[in-house]
Design a binder for these strands. Sequence first.
RNA 1: GGGCGCUUAGCUCAGCCUGGACAGAGUGUCUGGCUUCGGACCAGAUUGUCGCGGGUUCAAAUCCUGCAGCGCCCA
Length: 632
Amino acid sequence: MLRSIERALIDGLAGAVTEAGHDRTVDPSALELEDFDDDEKGEFSSAISFAIAADEGSNPMSVASSIADAHEAAGLPEGIGAVTVENGHINYHLDVETMARRTLSAIGDEAASYGAREHAAPETIIADVSSPNIAKPLHVGHLRNTILSDALMNVLEALGHDVARDNHLGDWGVQFGNLLHEYVEFGDEDAFEEDPIAHLLDLYQQFEQRDSMLEDVEAFEALTGSFEEAVAAERDHHTAAGKEWFARLEDGDEAAVERWERFREASIERFEAVYEELGVDFDLWIGESFYAREGWNDRIVDRALEEGVAMRAADGSAFIPIYPDEYEDAGDPERVDVDPSLARAREALDAAGNVEDADFDPFYIVKSDGSTVYGTRDLATIAYRIEEFDADRSVYVVASEQDHYFSQLFVAARKMGFTDLRLQHVNYGMISLPEGSMSTRGGQIVTVREVLDAARDRARDIVEEKGRGVDDDEVAVIARKIALATVKYGMVASNRGKDITFDIDEAVSLDGDTGPYVQYATTRAYSILDDAESVPEADAIDPGAFNDTDHRLIYHLGRYPLVLNLCEERYDAAPLARYLLDLAHVFNSFYHKNRVLDAESAAGERLALTAATAQVFENGLGLLGVDTLAEM
RNA sequence: GGGCGCUUAGCUCAGCCUGGACAGAGUGUCUGGCUUCGGACCAGAUUGUCGCGGGUUCAAAUCCUGCAGCGCCCA
């Protein structure tokens, strides 16, 4: 409703500007949506009078008045009750009765699909989400990724896109050769059965620590050179063995593949338990290994070399050269501008003598030992998504550490001739934990398991202390849902690009801007509705019966669809999370100021409004993956 | 050495992309509110060189630019 009024206002404003004798084009940015709280500003306002006055050398106040008069004479759009001029601004005021009637009937009619719509330009979207490496536990980074991408994809689906979530597992690469080697040499069957991921992580770290051991040794100059050499030789032996195991894996060697599959299956089994607890689901679990084992990587390499997009280096590696001026807009097929030929790279290489010093960035697709890398598999994934899925957009929900990598990948893809697909890196900032909030066990990673357990324990204490109408056997279930709300809000309430400090104490304290605050408001709405004998339909109420406090709530309910649009624009779920916090504030204030049940007037109207609010909470929290609670 | 990003109240963060009317929340601190639909709440008070300098503009937290600090990536 606000959206259609906004469009009508822009058209009307453009007409009024001309009618009042001013020469100025009016675009949508000329109109601003204001908060409902301010009587002076109205709900929509325009400052276009200042720009016109500056051009004409006239007074903004009189320009504004002339436009407002012209607009009023031509007729204001339906739903706008008045136009005023204040401080040179043109302010439009909603007709509150129309707003109430239209907003409440829209929510009543559309119910669970209020806010959702058919998209004018729907896309088929495939997104890399979560994407953990197998043989390692899920950590807080995966937590943010998984929760953000789940919410974002839910929103995109609600807005009419066709979305496939692909858990793009990191299940291929030389590190699994290393792991196979460690396992064969030092692995323990029983320990693996007991807790496969923990055991594999130990082996993995053991492999990696050989490097740091070497550094330690180098630090002690007192030690003899021969000891240093011995350590280096030991390290080299294991590195070579790891590479050999990965080569065996790539060749399909039975002993290698069989073990690797065990690692993969055990990891996935553990991951699935966590995902289920988080309440998230995926459409695809393709993983990097698929592209290696099904020949997609080889085809990418062949194609890149045959078409002269990639070049061989002296050491046998192959790369696609990328020039600094090509990065801009590579994600957008309509604006991308790259030169796939190698002429420029050859010149640069001649001038510089070697790849490192040349004036381009090499995007490697084959290493000197012939094995493939990340980039090869990501190019293969793009080819697959175009050929097998006919996707319009390939989305990568990956931490912003990878910004540079993805801008290179996108340029490389364009050079490969993959021009039909929109490529988008949805990056997000790092998560850190405040000092002392949780044990990080000597600098090791903080796992999703640890965060969830801590959140659940805190939530349980609070439910036991403050819960009302909660039976003892329900405490655990409710505590779990509250814990999830705290964690999800902690991950998604900040704009995705920003690093966040996740303070579990603050998140679970349930005071102020937290997930449980929104849950609490919803529970209060349910509680009122429960006590009502019946809730009137939206078209059976008198829209003139509401007061200012009611209007404020209605206005916020009407904003909901605009908020989803904003989420799509930014590819972020944070606007939705914050909107629901706002709505909870407004609703809490509403029922404190206004009696609902047995009110002297407008009882039925406020019940209908309460029902509509509960509906919007359900819809919005549902997209964020947060459960509502009848009791808490 | 090169590139990207961040810097707004004591703390955690919106607002910036698309410039506009006194810069907003939460938290903290202080005050008030339960015989009334659930006090995990509400009402009020308090808190700012919008990192620093320069520029563009009728108008800059917002756009451009230089610098500083922090983070990340590449080498």
